[in-house]
């Protein structure tokens, strides 16, 4: 049933040309230089230290690496991270599309 729903949704996005993050609950990552990252649609913090931040998202995890990382602000579906960011890695797990 879920797979069926997913297919329907995918079809509608393609037909209506909607952005995928809106429909599929995908994370949207906005980066400002290497000093700030704004991640919407996260699902919670997995790990946090001053050189690594792992966030779970709908399709897996996002890992930020850098130094002096701080969470400037955090809300249920949104997080702003600051610091010197050196890398973003996307790790897909769970079911495939």
């Amino acid at each position: 049933m879920r797979r069926f729903a997913r297919k329907i949704r995918k079809m509608t996005t393609e037909m209506l040309d909607l952005p995928q993050d809106v429909v599929f609950d995908l994370p949207r990552v906005t980066m400002m230089g290497d000093v700030q990252v704004h991640i919407e649609n996260h699902r919670g913090v997995r790990h946090f230290s001053d050189d690594r931040l792992r966030l779970s998202v709908s399709t897996g995890e996002i890992e930020l690496t850098g130094s002096d990382l701080i969470i400037r602000a955090i809300w249920p579906d949104e997080v702003i991270v600051e610091g010197k960011i050196t890398g973003i890695q996307y790790m897909r797990t769970g079911e495939s599309r």
Partner: peptide, 13 residues
């Protein structure tokens, strides 16, 4: 805490 919509910010290690 975020799930309960508590206002937290400036989280540092």
């Amino acid at each position: 805490a975020t799930k309960k919509r508590l206002e937290i910010w400036d989280v540092r290690f």
